[in-house]
Amino acid sequence: MSTSRRAEHYHHGDLRHALLEAAMAMLEAEGAAGLGLRELARVVGVSPAAPYRHFDSKGRLLEALAITGYQRFSTAMWAAERQSAPARRIGAMGQAYVRFALDNPNLFRLMFSPELKRDGRPSLRLAADAAFDTLKAVTAALPEGEKRVAALRAWAQVHGLAVLLLDGQIALRPGEDVDALVAAVIGAG
């Protein structure tokens, strides 16, 4: 193989972004267990060593995916909050929370996976905290001492509902609309 051809084969415009997008697709299709840096390199069309320039391990790749997930998650909740009347903001954010989980089940599970410890991963901690801050923002009118507990209460409710739905623990009745059920359960209707 000539040097110019090799350089052409290994050159990629934005490899980190391409790797993350391909990994996101693989994650949703196969779950975190199905992800591997060598397979990812094959899918993107680069050498097996190329992904290691951006992610020194599978753990770092999973961390980057979780950070991307938290960013998308926060964006979805903020969009729901901005599009709602003040009295319905927390319910709209709760619905966005559960909808994100249902639309991105493997990403959602990765984001909250006990295997991805936030300790020692400052970027992951910041992304997770920013997502929680979206829930805290709608409690701004409450006294300072009540904001955290109100946000935790809302988080526990929507997270529990999302996990129960993802795990099939809540069976939908024939013709039942999951979004209407979620709205009724969290009081957003």
Rank of each mutant, 00 (worst) to 15 (best):
E81C: 04
A85V: 09
A76K: 02
M93H: 10
A80N: 07
F73G: 01
R82W: 10
A92E: 14
R99D: 11
Y97W: 12
S74P: 02
Y97K: 03
T75W: 05
S74K: 08
A85P: 11
G91N: 08
A66Y: 07
E81A: 02
F100M: 10
F73A: 00
L102E: 12
Q95P: 01
A101R: 11
L65C: 05
R99K: 10
R82S: 14
S84D: 10
A79W: 10
I67H: 01
M77G: 01
F73K: 09
G94E: 14
A79D: 13
T75H: 08
R72H: 10
A92I: 06
I67P: 00
I90R: 15
Q71T: 11
D103S: 09
R72S: 06
I90Y: 05
F100T: 09
W78N: 09
A80T: 09
R89C: 02
S74Y: 04
G69D: 11
G94F: 05
E81S: 03
A92G: 12
T68E: 15
A101G: 11
A85M: 11
E81V: 03
I67A: 00
R82Y: 12
S74T: 14
A96F: 04
T68F: 02
G91T: 05
V98M: 06
L102H: 13
F100K: 06
A79M: 10
P86Y: 15
R88H: 15
R88P: 01
L102N: 10
R88Q: 13
Q95S: 10
A80V: 04
P86K: 15
A80L: 03
A101I: 04
R72G: 08
R99G: 02
A87H: 06
A80H: 06
E81Y: 02
A87L: 03
Y70S: 02
A92H: 11
Y97N: 06
A101N: 12
